[in-house]
Nucleic acid binder design. Structure first.
Lengths: 148, 148
DNA sequence: ACGCTATAGTTGATCACGCAAGCAAGTGTA
DNA sequence: TACACTTGCTTGCGTGATCAACTATAGCGT
């Protein structure tokens, strides 16, 4: 029970801090950032919205709104899928990549700083392994393309 | 970095599940539950709203609204502080204790079930220790009374 | 006694998200 | 072809939370 309480508090507090940093310095929420990050890593910089939702642990509607915002700022665009007309890709733009890069530099630095400051190499591995056992911790992506 | 991602994903997924369970079966959000829990443990079942806010990692306004809800359902009451007229205690009612007890039975069972299912005794200790090093993970309460 | 600053709490505006419902497009089956 | 079912996405609405602005009280230092 105590571990859970610690996880909860630590996560809330730390996320809050990172979120604020990201928002103040780059005008991105954590989810904005994560969305851009995943898109940038995806093939051709695009993903189906469903897959993005699953990756970000959001619902489909959450993603719609998230992308509305990013789209309005020109950081992502829409693209149709030739083989399935239901799907609307989210595609990261050049502008989006720039913003991501800028934010990434400082954000990743902060995160790794926090962890490396608090834990040793071995402890970090151990922590990752333990946390990885929790349900939903899997990093796996799923099918990211609409082609068969 | 990977540890952080895991923590984030695991926390989000697991919290979501617990939250839904608590809400459906007892009509309490996680914060409702935590608020009642902390009040029940506090001296005389009462706390200053500021202290409650700090405990729950909410802002003052968040607590105001949280307690508005609990108050409307008769689970907490207000009480004045004799020595400082700015403070308004939140006091848990008998009804509140009953609801807490009911919810606690199932919630605590679920949480410990998850952890004990996933980790051994020793691993649990280790996990709690590691997570405890993260900023904000401290469980300490702070001054819970308005008297000097 | 006076103002200055800090603290406790509330309120209004706004935001991010989930849920439920709906539409449009695929898929399976008869 | 016709029908039922599933899947991808969007929209309306409710909720939990924040921030900023405000009131009221407390506690200085001069």
């Amino acid at each position: 029970m105590s571990a859970w309480v610690r996880l909860l508090r630590a996560h809330a507090a730390t996320t809050r801090a990172f979120n604020a940093e990201l928002l103040n310095e780059h005008g991105l929420t954590i989810n904005d950032f994560e969305a851009l990050l995943r898109l940038s890593r995806a093939e051709e910089g695009r993903m189906r919205r469903v897959d993005l939702a699953e990756n970000l642990l959001l619902t489909a509607s959450g993603v719609t709104r998230l992308l509305d915002g990013l789209e309005a700022h020109g950081l992502v665009e829409r693209a149709a899928c030739s083989s399935d007309r239901r799907v609307v890709y989210a595609v990261i733009t050049e502008e989006g990549r720039k913003r991501l890069q800028a934010a990434s530099d400082s954000h990743v630095a902060s995160v790794t700083a926090l962890f490396e400051q608090q834990f040793g190499e071995e402890e970090l591995d151990r922590l990752a392994e333990l946390l990885g056992r929790l349900p939903g911790a899997d990093e796996s992506a799923g099918s990211e393309d609409c082609s068969p």
